[in-house]
Structures are given as structure tokens and as C-alpha cells.
């Protein structure tokens, strides 16, 4: 028999600390596979954010910087501006990117920074124990919305990809998920295209990946996948919101 699956070389040997069934692990693997396939592991500089993925610097087998809460796009900007020859990516959650760091996110996108953002949206603050995130669904219970998120009190779930789509500096914006092998393949393709945006100097690439938090959703891991497919996707539709390649085709360049 021959081995047909293997751990990507862009991951270290450190076991993930994530809770059972949390799909951060799948997303880490896909990002690492993409780094391997582009041959970028030795060149890349990654930025870990604050939240469950804070320890990403222990997992990716490339140079890494850990950023203050929400500031990863600013840190990435600083790195990319002084080292344009390096591939620079951030890995951020919804609290980090969509709440405390929405300013840095929008301005990095609006400047068209040549960086790649992996945005993991699980509709909750995982690390701190399941508080409401900017992306928490209407009616969804969290430790700070014990009776469910309501429009009157908390406003609407934040549509990050739709917001960034409006910015000319954003070259590639897609929302995907990892709830099945086919969705995993779509996510992989989206990551590759977001990498291309940076490699070709087109501007910011962002892949928003709907991800589970079984523990804070109080669901088993399989139920959590169903929750994404049935509830989250209704609020956060999947798809490619913007692709520089399409613009090239449309403009006839």
C-alpha cells in the first residue's frame, strides 16, 4: 500500500490545541497545503492574531509574528511595506477582524495592501468563553446574549465579505466553509486565488471561512457542521464576492 494523505510540510509537529471537532484544524491544514503547493513556506511571514488561533505561530512552519487584538492587518502592512519580496498572511477570527480590528481590516483592504487574510468566522468569541461576536446570528444565544442576539439591542451580524467587496483595493474576496469534502475543495481553491492576488500584486485577498465552535455553540461536532449549512449560510451566503481575474476578463485587459 502507498500513503495517500500526509501532513503538510508547512505545519510543525505541534498538536493543535483546538477543541474536539473545531474546524480551525481543517483550515490550518488547507492553508499549510496551499503554502506547500506555492512553495512559499520558506518565504512566508505569517501573523497570528488574538483569540483561539493565537497559537498559530506554533503550528505554521514559517516565520511568524503574533499581533495585538485586531491589529494583524496593520502588522502585516508594516512587514509587507518593508519586505515586499515576502509572502505575508494573517490568520484572524471574527472578534479580532470584525470587531476590534475592523478599522485595520478596512484600511488595509482600501490601501490595496498586497497581503492575504484568512478570516475564520465562527460567530462567537471562542477563547474567552462564547461571548457575542460581530457575526453572531440573530437569535443566536451566547454568554453575553443569553436570550439570543436581537436587532434592537445588538444590531445585525456584520457582513465582512460584503463590506470589503465595495473597496477597490480588495482584489479577491470569497466566503467558503469546510463542512464537507466538496466545500473543503472550494475553500482550497479560494485560498489559492487569494494567494495569487498577492503574488501578482493585485491587492488584498481575503477568504472568509465559516467555521464551527462546537463547545460554545453547545453542539456536537457533526451538529455544528449542520448549523453552518442550515443557519450560518443563510445569513452569510457562500461565494466569490470579488475576483481580480474576472475584472481582467471584463475590462478586456
Amino acid at each position: 500500500m502507498r500513503q495517500v494523505t500526509a501532513k503538510p510540510k508547512a505545519l510543525t509537529n505541534a498538536p493543535f490545541h483546538y477543541c474536539p471537532g473545531c474546524t480551525h484544524g481543517i483550515i490550518h491544514r488547507l492553508l499549510a497545503e496551499t503554502l506547500d503547493e506555492f512553495g512559499l513556506t520558506e518565504n512566508a511571514i505569517g501573523i497570528a492574531s488574538v483569540g483561539c488561533s493565537v497559537f498559530a505561530y506554533d503550528y505554521f512552519n514559517c516565520d511568524m509574528q503574533q499581533a495585538a487584538h485586531g491589529r494583524a492587518p496593520a502588522v502585516a502592512t508594516g512587514i509587507k511595506r518593508v519586505r515586499p519580496q515576502n509572502f505575508v498572511f494573517t490568520y484572524q477570527g471574527d472578534g479580532d477582524l470584525g470587531s476590534i480590528g475592523i478599522g485595520e481590516t478596512i484600511h488595509a483592504a482600501n490601501r490595496g495592501e498586497n497581503i492575504t487574510i484568512i478570516f475564520v468566522n465562527n460567530a462567537v468569541y471562542g477563547m474567552t468563553g462564547g461571548q457575542m461576536a460581530p457575526t453572531t446570528l440573530l437569535g443566536q444565544k451566547s454568554s453575553t446574549t443569553p436570550t439570543g442576539r436581537s436587532i434592537g439591542e445588538h444590531g445585525y451580524p456584520l457582513p465582512v465579505s460584503e463590506l470589503l467587496q465595495a473597496l477597490p483595493g480588495a482584489a479577491y474576496v470569497a466566503r467558503t466553509t469546510v463542512t464537507s469534502p466538496s466545500q473543503i475543495r472550494i475553500t482550497k481553491r479560494a485560498l489559492a486565488q487569494a494567494f495569487q492576488a498577492q503574488i501578482q500584486g493585485r491587492g488584498l485577498g481575503l477568504v472568509e471561512i465559516l467555521s464551527t465552535c462546537p463547545v460554545n455553540w453547545h453542539m456536537d461536532p457533526v451538529e455544528a457542521l449542520t448549523f453552518i449549512n442550515e443557519e450560518m449560510v443563510a445569513q452569510f451566503p457562500l461565494g466569490v464576492f470579488k475576483d481580480f481575474d474576472e475584472e481582467v476578463a471584463r475590462d478586456g485587459k
Binding site: Q3, V4, T5, A6, K7, L11, P15, F16, Y18, G21, C22, T23, H24, G25, I26, R29, S180, P181, I184
Partner: peptide, 10 residues
């Protein structure tokens, strides 16, 4: 593919 922890080798 579905394993979040790369615990399986096929």
C-alpha cells in the same frame, strides 16, 4: 480530509 487534527493517515 474531515479530520481537524491530522490524526489519520490513509
Amino acid at each position: 480530509q474531515m479530520c481537524p487534527d491530522i490524526a489519520l493517515t490513509v
